[in-house]
Simulated scan of single mutants.
Amino acid sequence: MQVRELSIAGAWEFTPAQFGDDRGIFLESFKAEVLAAAIGHPFTVAQANTSVSAAGVIRGIHFADVPPGQAKYVTCAVGAVLDVVVDLRVGSPTFGEYDAVLLDDADRKAVYLAEGLGHAFCSLQDGSTVTYLCSTGYNPSAEHGIDPLDRELGISWPLVGRDGAPLDFVFSAKDRAAPSLCEATGAGLLPE
C-alpha cells in the first residue's frame, strides 16, 4: 500500500495494491498496521457509515467537537467522488486550507483525516458509494458543519462529472444553512 501525507497535517492518502485476474480484482482496502504507522497511533473503529449519492451531491463540510472528535478513514467502493479535507483547527499553520483527493472504483484510494479536520465530498456520478470508518460514534449534539460554498475557503468543486456532463450541485438543507468559516470561528465552534 502506498502512503502519502496530504498538505494538511493529520490527513493521509492510501493507495492499495490491486491484484487482478480473469475473476476480477482483490485488494486490501484497510490495514490497521499501515494506518497506525502513518498516523503514529492505533485507529479504533467505533462505527462504519455508508452513503450512496447521485451525481452532483455535495455532502459536508462536517466535523465533530474535540475532544473527543471523530477521525475518519474514507473510501469510495462504487463510482467516484472528489473527497475534500479542510483544516478547521484554530491555530494550525494550515487553518482554513483544504486538500482534495479523487476517490473512485478504479484506483480505490482511501483518505484518513484526524480529529478536528473537516470532511466533505462531491459525487461525480450517480450511485457513488462512500464508506467511512469512524473513530467515535455519531453524536448529533457534537456534530457541526461549515458551508461547503464558503468563499473564504474557495473549494474548487468539480463542474463536470465522471462522464463529462455538467454537475448540478445538490445539498442537504442543513449543509447549505451551515455557517461560514468566519462565522463558526466567531461563534467558538471550531477545534483548537
Rank of each mutant, 00 (worst) to 15 (best):
D107W: 03
P191W: 13
F121D: 04
R89F: 10
K31Q: 07
T44E: 13
T15I: 11
R108F: 14
P166T: 14
V170I: 07
L35V: 15
E192F: 15
P140K: 03
G69F: 02
G188E: 06
Q47S: 12
A114D: 14
G24A: 07
R151K: 14
T15S: 10
E192M: 15
G116K: 12
G96P: 03
P191K: 14
S135M: 11
V90L: 15
C122K: 06
G10R: 10
C122Y: 07
A64R: 13
K31L: 10
L153S: 01
W12T: 07
D150T: 00
D83K: 08
G116L: 06
T15R: 03
I61N: 01
A165C: 04
I155N: 05
V90F: 15
G186A: 14
F63G: 03
L167A: 05
I61Y: 02
I39N: 11
C122L: 11
V52E: 11
V84L: 11
V160T: 13
W12P: 05
A71V: 00
D21N: 09
R151Q: 06
A46D: 08
S128T: 02
L133P: 04
G91C: 12
G56V: 00
H41F: 06
I25G: 00
F63A: 05
A11G: 04
T94H: 09
F63I: 00
S29R: 09
K72E: 07
I61H: 02
Y112R: 07
S29W: 04
C134P: 08
A71Q: 07
D22N: 11
P158S: 07
Q18W: 04
S92E: 14
A106E: 15
F19W: 14
P68E: 05
P16L: 12
I58S: 01
Y98P: 03
V45Y: 07
G79W: 07
A80F: 10
G20E: 14
G161C: 08
A106I: 15
E33C: 15
D168V: 14
E13L: 02
G118C: 09
D147P: 00
G24R: 06
C76F: 06
P68F: 00
C182P: 00
R59N: 10
D21K: 05
P93K: 11
S141C: 05
E28P: 03
T15C: 04
P16I: 12
R23I: 13
Q18N: 01
K31T: 11
E192R: 15
F169C: 03
F169W: 13
I155R: 01
H41V: 02
A48S: 15
W12Y: 15
I155C: 05
Q47L: 04
W12N: 09
L167S: 01
Y73N: 05
Q18H: 01
T50C: 14
G137H: 13
G10Y: 07
E97M: 08
A32L: 12
E192P: 15
